[in-house]
Design a protein around this nucleic acid. Sequence first.
DNA 1: CATGTCATGTAAGGTGTTACATGATTTC
DNA 2: GAAATCATGTAACACCTTACATGACATG
Lengths: 179, 179
Amino acid sequence: MEKYNNTTYAILGILTTGCKSGYDIKQLMDRSLSHFWKISYGQIYPTLKQLTESELVTVTTTTQDGKPDRKEYDLTSKGMEALEKWLLQPIEQTPVERNEVLLKLFFGRHQPTDKTLAQLEDYKQKLVERLQTYTSIEQAIRTNHETDPDAQYWLFTLDYGKRTTAAAIDWCNATIKAI
Amino acid sequence: MEKYNNTTYAILGILTTGCKSGYDIKQLMDRSLSHFWKISYGQIYPTLKQLTESELVTVTTTTQDGKPDRKEYDLTSKGMEALEKWLLQPIEQTPVERNEVLLKLFFGRHQPTDKTLAQLEDYKQKLVERLQTYTSIEQAIRTNHETDPDAQYWLFTLDYGKRTTAAAIDWCNATIKAI
DNA sequence: CATGTCATGTAAGGTGTTACATGATTTC
DNA sequence: GAAATCATGTAACACCTTACATGACATG
């Protein structure tokens, strides 16, 4: 069995949720996975093509009136197997999150203090907005997917985002005070 | 003035701390910036070459007895200006941290519960180890760089790592209970 | 005598984004 | 009439890691 990268498995996984087209996949990603996995069309379409060639998915073109043609993708049993196998693989190593704010703060000595503070305030605001986004997503899942068997897991991942973001906001406040 | 990527500025910044060679830069990165910025030699050496060509740094080859030759890089005034200018630029957008654990958990419905729990336990352990690493780095900074004017800022970035990691550990515990 | 440290560098390949191209329909 | 939504796709380029190549000295 070939090996694929995580993004490919993400697409495979999303196809189990009812999303069928490249467009659908992008929608769900932006709405529900965006806080820990984000990809562009430039990745989605070529990956779907590749998955079709490897026979992990099949494709059907459907015509709709008033809307453009769609290509609908469905997992094959081989595709489902590949997904399940990947899920069971242990996670190698958590890659480092690159943080531009921390990078600049690391060299904060070469910057006027008021600029450093302004940057921290700005970052804090972005984090607060992010936290609000998470709350919106949470609401959306609770109302639109109440009976969805996936909902529970989706809320777990959201909770992660909420907790770590809240911790980052606390850090902003503490650091602003300390400077 | 040309534009460079953040990694290039990271290298420029590290050159202000007393590190002078590519090897030194890698050392400091691994020891002090590794929790929010990590790069390989495959990036460092070509970047130093490029910075020399752009005249942001100068290079001197020094011979040492018992050790290989070293190339020592020094910031030029043009280089220092570029660094300061970059520090003042506002941060565009915080990129999304890709998290394989969350990605798999998102599709947790297709995995046996005991496997999901095992993965969370594993992740938790890695986070605990990471927290310990941060504490070691903190100790190292407090003892080796007590009088260093950079130390304060380095400790701020470490505090970020500690707080967000602790929040992630809390999340692990809560999620393990909830499943 | 094997491993670790010090030290520099390149080539190949993977991964990803951005910008562009195309075009119909619906909503304000 | 403009903008948003729906929908697919490619080419160019940016960025980065891994593996390899080289070699001396020090430590156990």
